[in-house]
């Protein structure tokens, strides 16, 4: 076991999947000698050459559109879109084709590909480099959406995403890239897509989150424990689509109270879907309205003000106390 940052853990997943299967091809801007702007593909070109670590022209639709063709031919392209804020340039290739090819051909042609993209704020970046629009992809039938919350699950989820038979959007919180290290085993570790996990057990309240917000949720849970003697259970979704609503239902049947946390804008955001699922599955267990702690329905401000936009443990604790009638 080595202690790795999320960048190093993702690099490990890519390297091992490429060693395992020569149909895994990396595509993206500056992913070759430069190793990607966040260095996720660092040194992979030395091991696999430029026929498998492919620097592309500066054109997002080219990356995803070509990946669709490559996948139809039998390859497993893993695309890096440099920032998710540029993925609208390739939105049509995912919505119109990657997500539909299996369906359109009744299972004859499939698109086992991954689009990796950094998302979210918190790193003092410029406009278009800080947003969270995972709901776009989660709203598209035919795609899967995965958002890891730390080095170890990032590595295991990326390996699963690459082996998945369907197109996967893999959102990497750039605030987590080098935020902390975790033990990551060298040996194979997979987390199945569509399965969420309990990140912190508790009995009084359920906090549901994912990605960069998970750490804030856990921090809030610790604060509630220390200050209010409230034990919050924190659920790490890991996959947004398909959404695992079994684990959250089980938790809410125990706690009766729920706070959902994400960085994405509030309206029509993931918390809206999560709240609806809880209403459908666990309405009679609820003892208080579900609270949402999210980004606001505005463009994330330039970084001097972003700390007021991005949810943090203070806002989560505040919402939890409201939910608990404290």
């Amino acid at each position: 076991m080595a202690r790795m940052t999320m960048v190093e853990a993702l690099n490990l997943a890519l390297r091992q999947e490429m060693e395992r299967d020569d149909s895994v091809i990396l595509l993206g801007q500056d992913i070759g000698l430069d190793g990607g702007v966040f260095r996720v593909t660092d040194k992979l070109i030395e091991q696999f050459g430029d026929s498998r670590v492919v620097d592309t022209p500066l054109a997002e639709a080219s990356i995803i559109g070509m990946a669709v063709g490559m996948a139809v031919h039998g390859l497993r392209p893993v695309c890096e879109i440099q920032f998710s804020g540029f993925a609208y340039e390739n939105f049509h290739q995912l919505e119109n084709h990657a997500a539909r090819m299996r369906w359109r051909t009744r299972g004859r042609l499939t698109v086992p590909m991954v689009m990796r993209a950094p998302y979210g704020g918190g790193v003092r970046a410029l406009e278009h480099h800080a947003e969270s629009r995972e709901a776009y992809w989660a709203h598209t039938p035919g795609l899967k959406v995965v958002v890891p919350s730390g080095p170890r699950n990032a590595r295991a989820l990326l390996a699963s995403a690459i082996r998945d038979p369907d197109p996967v959007i893999f959102y990497e919180a750039k605030a987590l890239y080098r935020a902390f290290r975790e033990e990551v085993p060298e040996t194979e570790e997979l987390i199945p897509l569509g399965v969420s996990q309990v990140a912190r057990p508790g009995k009084d309240l359920t906090i549901i989150s994912y990605g960069a917000m998970l750490r804030h949720a856990i921090e809030a849970a610790e604060e509630l424990s220390n200050q209010d003697r409230i034990e919050a259970e924190v659920i790490d979704l890991l996959t947004l689509s398909p959404l695992d609503d079994t684990l959250m239902a089980r938790s809410i049947e125990k706690t009766g109270r729920c706070v959902v946390v994400h960085e994405a804008p509030r309206s029509y955001g993931p918390a809206a879907e999560i709240s609806a699922r809880i209403m459908e599955k666990s309405f009679y267990y609820l003892e208080a309205p579900i609270e949402r702690v999210t980004g606001y329905d505005i463009i994330i401000p330039y970084f001097s003000r972003e700390k007021h936009y991005i949810p943090h443990s203070g806002r989560i604790v505040h919402a939890a106390r409201k939910c608990l009638n404290i």
Partner: peptide, 19 residues
């Protein structure tokens, strides 16, 4: 969707070259 298939052809061609 007009022209969108052109990139698929290029990706298939890329894969044909790789293989």
């Amino acid at each position: 969707p007009v022209a969108s298939q052109i990139l698929h052809a290029v990706g298939i061609g890329w894969a044909a070259g790789y293989r």
